[in-house]
Simulated scan of single mutants.
Amino acid sequence: MQKVLLTGGHGFLGNEIYKYLKTDRDVSVLTLGRSVNNDIIADVSSSSLSLPSDINIVVHVAGKAHSIPKTPTEIQEFIDVNFQGTKNLCEALQNRAKALKSFIFISTVAVYGLNSGKLITEDSPLNGNTPYARSKIMAEEFLRNWASRNGVILGILRLPLIAGPSPPGNLGAMINGIKKGKYLSIGKANARKSIVWAEDIAKIISVIANKGGIYNLTDGYHPSFNELEKAISKALKKPYPPKISLFLARFIARLGDLIGSKSPINSSKLSKVLSTLTFSDNKAREELGWNPTTVLDKIYLIINSNNLSK
């Protein structure tokens, strides 16, 4: 039986991975995290981690995301959790887990540091300069060296927007905004974004644990804002969100630039909304047999099965 250590197993993505791994009778799952619901109660940013010696596979999902730091202390938190936390975990594994075979790290497409582009591949430079992106780049670089020195198979999954039941981040905000009638569609809303279904990520874990490598994962369709807005509105049985012109949106964004960090919209955020940004998952399809489902269909099913809390 394979023993898997799963960090962040009670978070959004971690929970999907946990549920899927538990269906495999040949796998025993230990969760590590700060809440009392975990098998091992610990904070990865702490250097004092105590782990069993018979761990075969690590799936490192725990990390800090979905927030914009406003102070040096908040910026440092990204480094402490995403980078130093990864180092602490590896140090504990190196001292205890003699049976370790594979380490799977959940990373992000933010490492590329791009606001626009089409079908960006894994070979693209890692130019991300936000605290979140930098912390993930540092963790990736550390892991590549550590895994090579210790003969561990390393898998790195660079993920875009993740969809699933009660999604966090921008997708959850869009769903809740449309549900409450507080969402505005901007212009033609034809910019496309990569997205991936959480359960599909869970299903590929066992494959990458045996093979390793660095992969972008997407649903392969890359829906536009317009398509997402329509699918969500239809599923919620709500009218299509009201539109505002690009002229008005840009005017509001400029006001946001003057207001500062407290503004929900500024020119930089608007530019991201209006720009297509997609990533290629061809490598995963060719090497891992990646065959994802289309998120647009899944969003409709999830909303109508009442699995979304809001």
Rank of each mutant, 00 (worst) to 15 (best):
Q2C: 04
G14D: 09
E16D: 12
E16I: 11
E16C: 15
I17H: 14
Y18Q: 08
R25W: 10
V27L: 13
V27Q: 13
G33E: 09
V36H: 14
I40W: 08
I41G: 05
I41S: 00
S48I: 09
L51C: 12
P52E: 08
A62E: 02
A65I: 07
H66M: 00
I68H: 00
K70Q: 11
T71W: 06
T73E: 15
Q76M: 13
Q76Y: 15
E91M: 15
A92T: 10
L93A: 05
N95E: 15
A97H: 09
A97R: 02
A97G: 05
L100D: 08
S102W: 10
T108A: 09
Y112V: 02
L114N: 08
S116L: 02
I120R: 11
P125C: 02
N129C: 00
T130L: 04
I137Y: 07
E140H: 10
E141D: 12
A147E: 07
A147T: 07
A147F: 08
G151V: 08
L154M: 08
L154Q: 04
L157V: 09
L157R: 06
L157G: 03
P165Q: 12
N170M: 12
L171A: 13
G172Y: 14
M174F: 02
I178E: 07
K180R: 12
L184S: 04
K188T: 03
A189E: 09
W197H: 06
A202L: 01
A202F: 12
A202V: 10
I204Q: 08
G213Q: 02
G213C: 06
G213T: 05
Y221I: 14
Y221F: 07
H222Q: 04
H222W: 13
P223Y: 05
F225L: 04
N226I: 07
N226V: 06
A235W: 00
I244L: 08
L246W: 12
L248W: 03
R250I: 03
A253V: 00
G256S: 00
D257Y: 00
K262S: 10
P264Y: 04
I265K: 07
V273E: 09
V273L: 10
F279Y: 14
N282I: 12
A284F: 03
R285W: 13
Y300M: 05
I302P: 03
I302V: 12
N307H: 15
